[in-house]
């Protein structure tokens, strides 16, 4: 496992793409959050959730990063070199997942803390500090959510092997579900849809999506020729 991890970390470190995408994630998240806090009409109660709205945008960049980790290799044919060097396919996927988890969690932490800090600066007194239980929970949930979205993207891309289709699928899941659950009138269906929508306050559901995607990705990686 260690050589695989080292190889994946070297790939992530030495290509310009991932670094820019991570910086982009941070910038987009903080920018949208700060914008939302500064226009939100009512400084009503706890604004921690408002000041994390940027996660809606940041997740799109996380998805690109996650998808390219493997679909990029399929695009260039690099995947065959990778699998020749490390014939244990699950190990390769696990190493990719581990490196991805690490870098997205790091960038996600910076993005979330930056958003909360921006919220505190723009609306002093309405965003509680991190020592406050609920705020800490919301912040941790947002970081975990971004990490799980990355794993979801990796799983889908491993199964689909094409970056555009994978990104379309994952963004469809992330953006169409909330729209759909808003327009559906029936309470019962609405609750059902909301329950299966990947969201920061549904970490269990998000984890289930990510787990299912990774599992099917791993299975297909074993069964198919690269």
């Amino acid at each position: 496992m260690r050589p695989a991890l080292h190889a994946e970390w070297t790939k992530a470190r030495t290509v310009a793409g991932p670094l820019w995408l991570l910086l982009g994630t941070i910038a987009a998240t903080v920018a949208l959050s700060a914008g939302a806090v500064s226009v939100a009409r009512c400084p009503c109660g706890d604004m921690a959730e408002v000041s994390l709205i940027g996660v809606d945008l940041g997740q799109a960049l996380v998805v690109i990063l996650a998808v390219l980790v493997i679909a990029g290799e399929y695009g260039t044919g690099m995947i065959r070199t990778t699998l020749t060097a490390m014939p244990h396919r699950s190990t390769v996927l696990a190493a990719k997942a581990a490196v991805l988890t690490g870098i997205v969690a790091a960038a996600g932490t910076v993005a979330v803390l930056g958003s909360l800090l921006a919220g505190r600066l723009i609306l002093p007194g309405h965003v509680q500090p991190l020592t406050d239980g609920p705020t800490l929970r919301t912040a941790l949930a947002a970081i975990l959510y971004l990490t799980l979205i990355a794993l979801l993207g990796l799983g889908v891309a491993t199964a689909v092997r094409d970056s555009a289709t994978s990104i379309g699928t994952v963004l469809g899941l992330l953006y169409v579900f909330p729209v759909l659950s808003q327009t559906i009138g029936d309470q019962h269906w609405q609750r059902l849809l909301q329950r299966i929508t990947p969201m920061p306050d549904h970490l269990g559901v998000t984890a289930a999506w990510a787990g299912a995607a990774l599992l099917s990705g791993a299975l297909l990686l074993h069964l198919r020729d690269a």
Binding site: L61, V63, I64, G72, S163, A164, I167, G168, L171
Partner: peptide, 11 residues
């Protein structure tokens, strides 16, 4: 590059 194009337009 499809990844950038798809994400930009969806967003």
């Amino acid at each position: 590059h499809s990844a950038g194009a798809v994400t930009t337009v969806v967003v």
